[in-house]
Amino acid sequence: MTATATLHEDVQIGLVQIRVSNLERSLAFYQNVVGLKVLRTNGSVAELTADGQQVLLVLREIEHARMQPRKGAGLYHFAILVPDRPSLGLVLRNLIDSEIEVGQGDHLVSEALYIQDPDNNGIELYRDRPRDTWKRDAQGDYIMTTDPVDVDGLLAASEGLTWNGLPAGTVIGHVHFHVGDLAQAKKFYVDALGFEPTTHYGNSALFISAGGYHHHMGLNIWAGQGAPATPDDAPGIDYFTLQLPDGREIAEVAERVRQAGYSVAEAADGVTLTDPWNIGIKLITIPQSN
């Protein structure tokens, strides 16, 4: 078998599963504030969607959750990508109506809003600028920054539109993690899994992607060099899915990760990997459109 060195250009982030301390409270937040809809619930687990078909977020309630005063390695935020600027304007209007704290950043490639759920799980809601406007520097990195968002422009773009929750076409655009060591994270996510670096922030953060996207994943050591994994009984991330075109691509990635010395678990619904900080990655095939 000839394994490719990088992930297939059509790779997409699928769903994200996170741990919460109170499912009822979180469901109210993710419906009313974020704008997702409940697709189904089963005991302590709920699946949320934007279009009524594709699961974007799974909430899993943990009993007697340990609330972490300090962030360990694990979830920094997961990022919900809306299809256009008017949609992000409507998101902003709803967040303002919700009277919660909202962070924001114009990253040149995108405009982003940042919030936290009741368990301090980080959430980004953003829209991309057209890909042909993204610029690279002399080293080939995408040029990104954190400028103030044009709030008035976002509100104007959504003037006269009605908020009905997140629209069809909304997806998980990327995930961003605290890690304990950037070199170790690069060894796993780039050298073994096959993402490609797209932006470096000194020695403190690395953005990586497949297919030329600005980033499918952010990795940082802002929780401290050597930060330990967030414990399983605290809110945080269980896993995210990586959608690949077919079983052959999944097999090639799994073999590459296995050859690099990491554990690989195979099941009927895909292949599961675990990063050095106990974050799960499920490799699945891209769902076929109806």
Rank of each mutant, 00 (worst) to 15 (best):
V109Q: 00
S110W: 04
E111S: 12
E111Q: 11
A112V: 14
Y114C: 03
Y114S: 11
I115K: 10
D119F: 10
D119C: 09
N120H: 14
G122H: 07
G122F: 11
G122S: 11
I123N: 13
I123M: 07
I123S: 13
E124S: 11
E124Y: 07
D128F: 10
R129C: 05
P130R: 02
R131W: 06
D132F: 12
D132P: 01
K135S: 13
K135A: 14
R136A: 03
R136P: 08
R136L: 09
R136K: 15
D137F: 00
D137W: 00
Q139H: 09
G140S: 03
G140D: 08
D141G: 09
I143W: 08
I143M: 12
T146W: 03
D147N: 14
P148V: 13
P148Q: 13
P148N: 14
V151F: 01
V151G: 06
D152R: 04
L154R: 00
L155Y: 01
E159F: 06
G160L: 13
G160H: 09
W163S: 01
W163Y: 09
N164E: 14
G165M: 12
P167S: 12
A168F: 01
T170D: 00
G173C: 09
G173T: 08
G173P: 06
H174I: 02
V175M: 09
H176K: 03
H178Y: 14
H178S: 11
H178I: 13
L182N: 04
A183G: 12
A183Q: 14
Q184N: 07
Q184D: 03
A185I: 13
K186Y: 03
K186A: 05
K186G: 05
K187Q: 15
K187N: 12
K187V: 08
F188T: 07
Y189F: 15
V190I: 15
V190N: 05
D191L: 08
A192L: 07
A192V: 10
L193K: 01
G194S: 09
G194Y: 03
F195P: 02
F195K: 06
E196S: 13
P197Q: 06
T198Y: 00
T198W: 00
T199A: 08
T199R: 12
H200D: 14
Y201I: 14
Y201F: 15
G202Q: 12
G202K: 04
N203W: 03
S204Y: 08
F207S: 05
